[in-house]
Design a protein around this nucleic acid. Structure first.
Lengths: 108, 108
DNA sequence: ACTAATACATAAACTAATTAGGTATGGAGG
DNA sequence: CCTCCATACCTAATTAGTTTATGTATTAGT
């Protein structure tokens, strides 16, 4: 069962920020990391990923910089900001709250 | 911390269906049930609730019928269908999947 | 007479994710 | 040499669930 659409909505930013809180990364790599970590269950299209990046940068949760990869291919790296770390904390708390709430309703 | 907006998105149907899987209920009561069960943390506006009902009924996950309450006030009751029960099961499985995925990324 | 609680309903706005397209480089195989 | 795949980035338009902002109507209590 893959996780798609509205179930994921609102959580993509948290996932991306949590990965960036470990290491700076760039779009392509981050996407692979997500797929690998979830055994292919988390499917973010590239478009979704880049719109997430755009929103995160607009909100100053991440900074970006260009850096050469192998074969002089340009990669756009993202790094999490202090503000991003704070936001990730608040979203993690919100997730825990949601978990408790869902547990009250669903027969798990 | 209240659960609002996009974090809830995609899960409202599951919550409503899980309540209806216990007893038939109507909008106003169901809203109170949700608030009571979550100590006021789950805040669904009436508009959201009624659009959820509408969608659920369109998809044949619930049926509705009018019934008098106290003082002959009309209440629109909803009951879950077989199809709704199946959908709730699939959404519960999807929720568990999401839980596992989030656990892999967030420091909980 | 007014207010709060009960009870239902919808149109328009908002916004995050998806669909569907686009550009460009380098390596491998035929 | 030419095609395909992997790497790497980007955006416009669409879709769809939630919110905002309204509206109606009844009954109970002050």
């Amino acid at each position: 069962m893959n996780i798609v659409g509205d179930l994921l909505r609102g959580h993509t930013a948290s996932i991306v920020l949590s990965i960036l809180s470990e290491n700076d990364s760039y779009g392509y790599e981050l996407n692979k990391t997500m797929e690998r970590t979830t055994d292919g269950k988390l499917m973010l299209t590239e478009a979704t990923l880049y719109t997430v990046f755009k929103r995160l940068e607009k909100n100053e949760y991440v900074n970006s910089y260009w850096k050469d990869g192998v074969n002089n291919v340009k990669r756009k790296y993202y790094s999490i900001t202090e503000k991003g770390i704070e936001y990730l904390k608040s979203q993690t708390a919100a997730w825990i709250e949601l978990e408790h709430t869902m547990k009250k309703f669903l027969k798990l």
